[in-house]
Simulated assay, not measured.
Amino acid sequence: MVATAASSGSLPPDLFDTTTLVSLAATLVMLGAGYAASRKFLPANAKNSTRVLFVWHAFDALIHLILEASFLYHCFFSWIPVSSVSAEDIASKRFYMPEPSPFLGRPDRIYGSQAGAIHGNPFAKLWMVYARADRRWGGPDLGVISLELLTVLFVGPMTVWVCYEMAMRRSRVNVLMIIVATAELYGGFMTFCPEWLVLNDNLDCSNFMYKWVYLVFFNTLWVWLPLYALYVAISEIQDAFAVRDAVTKGKKSN
């Protein structure tokens, strides 16, 4: 989801620090939890597509309701006084401050993961790892927060609902998957399109990890899996319509 790459340079010294490794491990744990849930709640003979999509939506729910919810928490409740940092730090964009209006009308405060990390919060430190690649996640970017409010409050519960309907083997899950997938694709576009229009001003594509792992791999998961969910759900709905049409034609012929 990166349009252009920044100039290449030497690898940053903190590329594989403890916080980074813990952050990547936490993502794998959530994926493992999704798979374990599929083993518990889906029948052993469940179709491969059903199991893949159950794991995906369970993983998606954990990301939205734990990690992204923590991002929102720090945007609204973690702050440090502007007076505690130097003017040079602010001018050099070391701290993210929304322009042109101050966040929550408080020009005297710096909000977001950047503030939570200074206070030592582990979730804030996790987001500051990702913010090395996309600095908007270090602070209260207004576009990102607006999307995350919808994602956490609406899409997160919807993904849990999808998993529940799959476990109950209810066909209406296909309609829910279409809603969730459409929301994910739209949200991804609205997250990165503003950056494309300013030539990725907030993105750091200077090394493999930032560009291909953080920005491309992790973000395109929310492109390819929703597209696959759309394909499966629409196919199931089309099959149902085909059966109904066949029954209707049979009744007319009689």
Rank of each mutant, 00 (worst) to 15 (best):
A246R: 08
E195C: 09
S171V: 02
A46N: 00
F54Q: 03
A240W: 10
H57C: 09
S113L: 01
L126C: 12
D17P: 05
A26L: 09
A91F: 14
S206V: 07
D239A: 10
E236A: 13
L150R: 08
A36G: 00
S70G: 11
D134N: 08
R51F: 00
L149H: 12
N45G: 06
T159D: 08
M1L: 04
G187C: 14
T159K: 11
L42V: 00
H64F: 07
T220L: 12
L24W: 03
L185A: 09
L199N: 15
G138R: 05
D141M: 13
S113Y: 07
A36F: 11
L203I: 15
F241H: 08
G188H: 03
K125G: 10
L203V: 08
G112P: 09
S113M: 14
S206D: 12
W79M: 00
D89F: 02
V213L: 14
E195P: 15
L21V: 03
L221C: 05
T248D: 11
Y164A: 06
W79H: 11
N174P: 01
N174Q: 06
Y96W: 14
K93A: 12
E165K: 14
M209C: 06
H57W: 04
L225Y: 11
A133S: 06
G116E: 04
A242L: 09
G156W: 12
W222L: 10
F154L: 06
W224Y: 14
F217P: 09
L225P: 02
F123Y: 15
E184R: 01
F77R: 09
A167V: 12
V55P: 02
W222P: 04
G32R: 05
L176H: 13
P81G: 03
T19C: 00
W137Y: 12
R244W: 15
P13S: 09
P12K: 05
F95K: 06
F16T: 14
Q238F: 07
L153M: 14
A87V: 10
F71G: 03
G188L: 15
S10A: 09
F123W: 15
